[in-house]
Every structure is written in structure tokens, then in C-alpha cells.
Design a protein around this nucleic acid. Structure first.
Length: 679
DNA sequence: GGTCCATCACTTTTT
DNA sequence: GTGATGGACC
């Protein structure tokens, strides 16, 4: 058993770990060791306070964070004592909760989880449009309502758009029910609704959970906060860790007001601030503190460190984005050789994903290895969705979207007409498309010739279904996967529809998926059916284990960089319009018009984004901005971001301009060679 | 009626 | 670079 004094915690961290008398809020500045506090607190609860591991739950927002936390806990708590400990995302706990309580919600316990693409398709059909913007707006509105715990009937629409969204919302809910499916928001919302409505369920969960820890508390939405309150109930034993200055997800429903609410709802709330930063040098921290001091603050925090003064922050103006990409590339290349730093010590951070492309180009040319964080998710690729549709259908044959996708990909003689007839028939019978195939009257609706392929398909799925729920000892998931893949003949399909190169790439993705699934099933002793139910929550991060540790420069959006740190950081495109980002005035608010409030809040969130970016840097930070930038077909004249002025740098730092300005490509390379000192 | 090319408009994104 | 739209043409 480890002595708490020997853990090397600073006084505030120690206080946060030891405090158990009631609800506790830890305000953890960037780089102040918050993961450390959470993991040490879990260890303390188990090792010193006699808590059973299974009565402790730690919630995170991403799989990545959960995984990291599990690893760190396993480091300090022996395997036996930590058995049964729950460290997972809000959504994963939601799934577990719903599977267990499904019957109380009139839901099959094998319900499907629709991701936002699936949900978007349902909404697309309801709106009968292909206008992506419109679909996204409505979908987002519904999601925001759900996150605010508002049902269709709670909404009083004030605009035609809201009225439309309300109509779709109602429809959408009915459709999900028919599909025996839930969306991501439901994974939190339904548990809340059930715990509110059902005393027995509420008490059972409150008894089960003896201590709750919440990471990134500033990113919680109304619904998640409500759930935390319900789960901890009367005993109020929880620790929330967060940083209001790093709240950058208001646009998807997160509300910083949850921090203020915590102080209101719990008069006995203990607030502990972590202000010592273990990451960055003073120049970086000073700039960060200055920028964020322009935001109103519920809790005043000032970061400090003992890592020394550090290099001055550099601000470089560029002619255009090509020059920016090339110059940043050359600076990184030069620094890599001169400082003998590894590639992975560098990061380029930007506001929008589209900014990545030009850096990729430049880096390829300069032979700089890079890896892009984010981008299209592995699970969003068509070939992956195709295979998963089969698996979803096997798990839940009420899942109509999965049925349609699986039965038509690859083509097996079931066309649009057959599907339309089947659909109408299913509606009249109040059953799923899959179920409709087995209704006796189907022969009156669909002719023998069209029915045959449907029957063959459905019977195959049923055959797999039967065995998919058998215990692992009797039926391995791997075997069923192989059988399924043999039936689909997906490789042939790929080569018929794509050229060889593309087909090969896509097939490789499928092989990766299958291999990953088999390993997962093996490692965690899962039945086929368990496997399916886990997939919806997995992102590519978990898949990336092997590829993770490569020596490459990180290209990342500011959002995706939260929680990471790098010795050398370039923040690029630090311009008015990009950071702070401005959209169309009518949508986002005009500073001069009546929606000033909205505008002010948007700027504040952008400022927090700037703060997140600055605080990623450990030793050196460089900001760049372009005087000109192409947007669509226009070339826009740009101004440096107001946030640069807010950093309060000395004049000379701001006047640096592109060292490669006006040079030809050849001259630039010569210059680069000169910059790299001979070893 | 279907296909092809020009034109336009483009946050952030985990689960 | 992408993906959707719309007009022109077959």
C-alpha cells in the first residue's frame, strides 16, 4: 500500500485526492496534472479507504481518455483490487445501463445504436431533401433539444425552422422506436428519463455506485449533469474535474453553466484549484494567462510553472497560405536537425480541417513525416458501414436501415421496387422489413421471382442469428464472422465496382476490421452478439494501437489537440475570421445587431480555443498568419487575430515576417540547407 | 430522360 | 479538393 505522501503530489493535488467528505470540484488548469489526480484518487479509494472497485465509476468523454486512465490506474493498483472498476465514456455507461434496463423502457435489449450518419439519413428521408446544410441544421437542433432534456412536446417553436425541426423530431423518435434503435444522445437521455420515472431503478443504481469521478466536467451538457446528479443521489460522493477556460464544445450542447450550477446545487461543494502547470515555460503561460484574462471568469485561475522563462513567442506574417505551409515546414525541418528533436516533438495546429491539406502537400514535398489527427473516421467509410450493416441486422432484425444496406450491398436481385412494396407491406403489418418477409401474405404482395432472393437472404441471416447468441464455448465469434464474410463475397463486389487500387485499399480496410473484431472477441471473451453491440461506440482511436507510436509531426485541429502536449508548437492561420472564426453574419450574429450576446459568447469560445492551442506548447510557440488567403475563388485580405494583440508580446516579436519571402523554390531550399547547421 | 460539364460554397466533431 | 446543383445537350 502506497503512502499518500510518497506520491509526489503537490498540496492542491493531494487535497483533491484526499477529500471525500462530499461533492468536490477540481478546477484543473491546462497541464496541471488532472489525470494524475483522478487516477490517484481511484487508487486511494481502493487501497486506503476500502472501496470495492466495482462501486467506483470514472467517466470520460472519449475512448482515448478512458483507455489512458485505465492504463494509469493499472499501473498503481494491482490487477486483483482493480477488478470490476468502471472507467469508461458517458456513452459506454449509457449502453450498459440501457442493456440492463431495456425492458423498463419498452426496448429490446438488443437495440441498435445509430451513429450520426444513420440518424442523418433518417432525417434526410423525412425532409425529402439532399440539402446537407439543412439536414445538418435540423439534426443538430434535435440533438441540442435532446441534450437539454426537451422532448418534442416540450418545445414551443418560435421560427418556421424550429417548427419544422419539431415535426421531424416527433417523426424521428417514432422511427427510432420502430427500428428498436437509439441514437448517441439517447444513450444518456434515456437513462435520465428512466431514473426520474422509476424509483426502483434509481435506487438500485444509486446503491451500486459509491463514488463517481467525472473528467472534463466543463464539457458536460444539461443531460449529462442531470445524470451525474441522479447517479450520485443522496450520498453526493463525487469528484468533478474540469477547466472552464478549456470549454470549447458549446456548439454541441456542452454548457459551462454546469460549473456554476454545481456551486448552486451543492452548498457543501468543495472547490480545489490546480494552478501549478507542469507542462510549459513562462513565456507560453504568460501569453495564455493574458489571452484568457479577456474572458469573464467564474473562478479566477493563474497558471504558473517552474520550468524557466523559455524562448520568446514568435509571430510571423506570411504572404499567403502556400508560403505559410512551406515556411512552417522548413522551420520544423531546420529545428528537427538543429535541435536534434524528433519529428513527433512538433505539432501544427489549425482551426479548420481544410487547412490541413496544404500542409500535407508541403510536408510531402519537404519529406517531413506527418500524421493527421481526426479526419474521416474509419467507421464512416462505406466498406466498413457495409459490413457492419450485416452485423447490426443479425443483432437486431428490426433495424431497417441495416436491413436495406445489407440486402442491397452487394446486389442480390433485390431492387428498389421490391423494397418499396416490402416497405408498404411492413407498414400495414406494423412490423420490420425483415419481419415482413416471413408474413404469410407476403406472396400476395411480392412475386415469386422477387421473393426468392429475399427469402434466401433472410434465412441466411436467421441461421447466423441463432448461433450468434450462443455462449462462446459453443460458438466462437470468429467462426461466424468468417461464415458471414464468405457469404457476402465482399471482395468480389469491391473489384467489380472500383478500379484495382481502390478496391484493394478498401478490402484492406475490411480485413483490418475483421481482424480487429476477431481479436476483440478473443481478448474479451465476447459472443458475436456482444461484439456487435460494442462496435457503435468505438472510434478509430482504439483501432490505431499499433500505428500510434510513430515519429511524425502532428497535424491537428485545435479542438482535437485538447489534452495533448508538444515541445514545439506552430499555430497557423491566426487571423481575424479564422481564429476567431466567423461564419455568415446572419447565422452567427453581427456585433452591431441585436444578437450581440450570441456574438460575444462565440468570441469567448474562440478565445478559449486560442487558449487551448497556446497551452499545448511546452517550450516553443510560433504563431503565423497570412496577409492574403484564398477562400472559394476569392483572395481575401486578412488581419492578424485580435488574440495576438491580447497576448501582450513585445513589438519586435510581432514584426517578424516570412524569412523566405519572395524567394523561388530553389532559393528557398538553399536557404533551408543553410538553416540546418552541419552536424 | 439522362448524362456531362461548369459553377458555387464550404467550422469545430466525440459518442 | 469535394460534392451538390443546374443548365445544356444528346
Amino acid at each position: 500500500m502506497s503512502d499518500i505522501d510518497s506520491l509526489g503530489l503537490n498540496p492542491s493535488q493531494k487535497e483533491a485526492v484526499l477529500y471525500l467528505d462530499g461533492p468536490c470540484l477540481v478546477l484543473a488548469g491546462a497541464g496541471s496534472g488532472k489525470t494524475r489526480v483522478i487516477t490517484q484518487k481511484i487508487a486511494y479509494l481502493i487501497n486506503q479507504c476500502g472501496y470495492e472497485a466495482r462501486s467506483i465509476i470514472a467517466l470520460t468523454f472519449t475512448n482515448k481518455a478512458a483507455k489512458e486512465m485505465v492504463e494509469r490506474v493499472n499501473h498503481i493498483v494491482d490487477k486483483k483490487s482493480s477488478k470490476g472498476l468502471t472507467v469508461c465514456t458517458f456513452h459506454a455507461l449509457g449502453v450498459r445501463f440501457l442493456r440492463q434496463e431495456a425492458k423498463n423502457l419498452n426496448l429490446k435489449d438488443n437495440f441498435s445504436i445509430l451513429d450520426s450518419t444513420d440518424a442523418g439519413q433518417i432525417i434526410q428521408e423525412m425532409l425529402a431533401t439532399t440539402d446537407k446544410v439543412r439536414i445538418r441544421v435540423i439534426q443538430q437542433q434535435i440533438s441540442l433539444w435532446k441534450n437539454d432534456l426537451l422532448g418534442p412536446d416540450d418545445i414551443v417553436p418560435t421560427t418556421p425552422d424550429e417548427k419544422e425541426a419539431q415535426r421531424v423530431y416527433r417523426n424521428y423518435e417514432a422511427t427510432l422506436k420502430a427500428y428498436q434503435s437509439v441514437d448517441f444522445d439517447d444513450l444518456i437521455r434515456l437513462p435520465v428519463l428512466l431514473m426520474r420515472a422509476n424509483e426502483e431503478v434509481k435506487e438500485r443504481w444509486q446503491k451500486r455506485i459509491k463514488y463517481l469521478l467525472v473528467d472534463e466536467y466543463q464539457d458536460t451538457n444539461v443531460c449529462q449533469y442531470e445524470w451525474v446528479k441522479l447517479l450520485t443521489g443522496w450520498h453526493q460522493k463525487f469528484t468533478a474535474v474540469g477547466d472552464d477556460d478549456q470549454a470549447i464544445y458549446a456548439w454541441r450542447g456542452a454548457t459551462i453553466e454546469n460549473l456554476a450550477k454545481l456551486t448552486q446545487d451543492y452548498s457543501n461543494l468543495k472547490i480545489i484549484k490546480l494552478e501549478q502547470n507542469y507542462r510549459s515555460v513562462e513565456t507560453v503561460l504568460n501569453a495564455a494567462n493574458k489571452v484568457i484574462s479577456n474572458n469573464p471568469n467564474l473562478f479566477q485561475k493563474t497558471l504558473w510553472s517552474t520550468l524557466g522563462k523559455g524562448e520568446p513567442i514568435q509571430v510571423i506574417s506570411m504572404e499567403n497560405e502556400e508560403a505559410e505551409a512551406e515556411t512552417v515546414g522548413m522551420r520544423i525541418s531546420a529545428a528537427h536537425f538543429n535541435k536534434k528533436a524528433q519529428w513527433k516533438d512538433f505539432a501544427v495546429l489549425y482551426r479548420g480541417n481544410h487547412q490541413a491539406r496544404i500542409f500535407e502537400q508541403a510536408f510531402r514535398q519537404l519529406r517531413i513525416p506527418y500524421s493527421i489527427s481526426g479526419g474521416q473516421s474509419f467507421f464512416d467509410k462505406a466498406e466498413i458501414r457495409d459490413i457492419l450493416a450485416y452485423m447490426r441486422l443479425i443483432a437486431n432484425d428490426d433495424d431497417d436501415p441495416a436491413f436495406i444496406r445489407a440486402v442491397t450491398t452487394p446486389r442480390r436481385g433485390v431492387g428498389q421496387t421490391t423494397l418499396t412494396h416490402l416497405g408498404e407491406f411492413a407498414v400495414s403489418k406494423k412490423c420490420s422489413l425483415f419481419g415482413a418477409i416471413f408474413e404469410p401474405e407476403i406472396i400476395e404482395i411480392i412475386a415469386e421471382r422477387q421473393l426468392k432472393p429475399l427469402m434466401v437472404f433472410a434465412q441466411f441471416i436467421q441461421g447466423i442469428q441463432e448461433r450468434a447468441a450462443k455462449p462462446v464455448e459453443q460458438q466462437s465469434a470468429a467462426e461466424l464472422l468468417d461464415e458471414l464474410m464468405a457469404y457476402i463475397r465482399y471482395e468480389d463486389y469491391l473489384y467489380e465496382h472500383h478500379d484495382d487500387r481502390a478496391a484493394q485499399a478498401r478490402w484492406q480496410n475490411v480485413l483490418d476490421l475483421i481482424e480487429w473484431l476477431k481479436r476483440k472477441a478473443q481478448d474479451d471473451d465476447m459472443r458475436f452478439i456482444d461484439l456487435v453491440q460494442h462496435i457503435a461506440l468505438i472510434t478509430m482511436l482504439e483501432r490505431n494501437e499499433q500505428e500510434e507510436e510513430q515519429d511524425a509531426v502532428t497535424l491537428s485541429t485545435l479542438h482535437a489537440s485538447k489534452g495533448l502536449e508538444f515541445p514545439y508548437v506552430h499555430m497557423v492561420g491566426v487571423e481575424e475570421g479564422l481564429l476567431p472564426h466567423m461564419g455568415k453574419e446572419d447565422e452567427y450574429g453581427d456585433p452591431n445587431k441585436d444578437n450581440e450576446e450570441l456574438y460575444v459568447q462565440r468570441i469567448q469560445e474562440e478565445r478559449r480555443l486560442m487558449y487551448v492551442g497556446i497551452t499545448r506548447a511546452q517550450y516553443e510557440l510560433t504563431l503565423t498568419w497570412c496577409k492574403k488567403r484564398k477562400k472559394a475563388r476569392e483572395e481575401l485580405i486578412r488581419e492578424p487575430s485580435r488574440f495576438i494583440a491580447e497576448m501582450g508580446l513585445e513589438d519586435k516579436q510581432q514584426k517578424l515576417s516570412d524569412p523566405f519571402k519572395g524567394m523561388s523554390a530553389k532559393e528557398r531550399l538553399a536557404q533551408l540547407k543553410q538553416m540546418i547547421k552541419p552536424v
